[in-house]
Computed example of a mutant assay.
Amino acid sequence: MDPTLNRRTFLAGLGAAGMLATLSGCARTSAGGATVSGLPQQMVWSTYSAGTGTYNDVAAVANMFTQHAGVQVRLMTSDTGIGRLAPLISGTSHYARAGDEYYYAFEGDDEYTSQVWGPQPIRQIWAPPGNYGVLVRKDSGIETVADLKGKRYPRLVASTSMNRKLLAILNYGGLTFDDVTLVDISYGEQTEAMKTGQLDAMYQNVVGAHVEELASQYPIRWLDLGGNDSSRYDTWEELSPMVRPGEFTGGAGMAAGESAVNMQYSIPLTTLADRSADEVHQVLTVMHENFDLFKNATPDAESFGLDQVLLDPMVIPFHDGSVRFFEEQGRWTPGMERRHQALLERERLMGDAWPDFWEEYADADSPRTEWRTWKNENLPALPAIDDQPGSETTA
Rank of each mutant, 00 (worst) to 15 (best):
Gly130Cys: 08
Pro128Leu: 04
Thr333Ile: 04
Glu101Tyr: 14
Pro219Met: 13
Trp222Gly: 01
Val44Arg: 15
Leu5Lys: 12
Arg331Glu: 11
Tyr104Val: 09
Tyr132Ala: 10
Glu212Thr: 10
Arg221Tyr: 06
Val58Lys: 04
Arg123Leu: 11
Val157Arg: 12
Gln341Trp: 00
Lys295Arg: 14
Ile267Arg: 00
Gly25Pro: 00
Phe10Ile: 02
Thr66Leu: 02
Met336Gly: 04
His281Thr: 13
Tyr112Ile: 13
Thr235Phe: 07
Pro3Ile: 11
Leu175Asn: 05
Glu370Pro: 03
Phe294Asn: 04
His94Arg: 08
Gly246Asn: 02
Gly257Asp: 04
His281Gly: 14
Val211Met: 01
Val323His: 00
Ser161Ala: 11
Gly197Thr: 11
Glu238Val: 11
Glu111Asp: 12
Gln190Phe: 06
Asp387Ser: 05
Ser303Leu: 01
Glu247Thr: 11
Arg339Thr: 04
His94Lys: 05
Ser230Asp: 07
Thr298Gly: 10
Ser90Ala: 08
Gly330Gln: 06
Phe106Trp: 13
Tyr361Lys: 15
Ile220Asn: 05
Gln41Arg: 15
Leu75Thr: 06
Glu213Pro: 01
Gln115His: 11
Leu306Lys: 10
Ala215Val: 12
Leu20Gln: 15
Gln329Ala: 13
Gly38Leu: 13
Val207Asn: 15
Lys195Cys: 08
Ala12Met: 10
Asp57Leu: 01
Asp292Phe: 03
Pro40Phe: 08
Trp371Phe: 04
Asp320Leu: 09
Leu382Asn: 02
Thr394Tyr: 09
Pro241Ala: 06
Ile82Gln: 14
Tyr104Pro: 00
Ala301Gln: 05
Gln124Asp: 10
His288Asp: 11
Gly305Asp: 07
Asp278Val: 14
Ala277Trp: 03
Ile142Cys: 07
Val116Leu: 14
Pro154Gln: 03
Thr77Val: 15
Asn205Gly: 14
Phe304Glu: 07
Leu306Met: 10
